[in-house]
């Protein structure tokens, strides 16, 4: 029997959902305020890139991008089913979970390029 991907995709969905519940609204308020609070974009660039170059900062930023990507991909994938939008499983799965994986890999690549 073919193994289901559901345990893995649900775990990532659950982790992303918990992360978004814990820090989602706070993060959005922070980025809304960010440009107005910033006096010196150059100084903010220096402190952000220093913070994200630290291993803990890299891991935190990757989690904050990758887990919500998997969470939203999972919800939208199942939402299509609710809306009666069907298609080949490999295609829909590839677009949603594959897309989240590719974007997470890009995020890791850009973080390591800092």
């Amino acid at each position: 029997m073919r193994r289901s991907h559901e345990p893995i995709s649900w775990s990532l969905f659950g982790a992303g959902g918990m992360l978004l519940a814990l820090i989602g609204p706070g993060l959005i308020v922070s980025t809304l305020l960010l440009p107005w609070l910033t006096q010196d974009p150059q100084a903010l660039y220096v402190s952000f890139s220093a913070g994200l170059r630290h291993p803990l900062g890299t891991c935190a930023a990757l989690a904050v991008v990758a887990l919500p990507l998997y969470h939203t991909a999972h919800r939208l994938y199942h939402g299509l089913h609710d809306l009666h939008i069907t298609g080949p499983g490999w295609l829909l799965g590839g677009v949603f979970y594959g897309g989240a994986t590719v974007l997470s890999a890009l995020c890791a690549f850009w973080l390591l390029a800092l």
């Binding site: 978004l20 993060l27 980025t31 991008v65 990507l69 939203t72 850009w110």
Partner: peptide, 18 residues
């Protein structure tokens, strides 16, 4: 999930621009 996905892409572009 849809606006949250778009917001996450906004954050991702921030990391790219950084």
């Amino acid at each position: 999930a849809l606006p949250l996905l778009l917001y996450t892409l906004l954050l991702l572009t921030g990391i790219y621009q950084l």
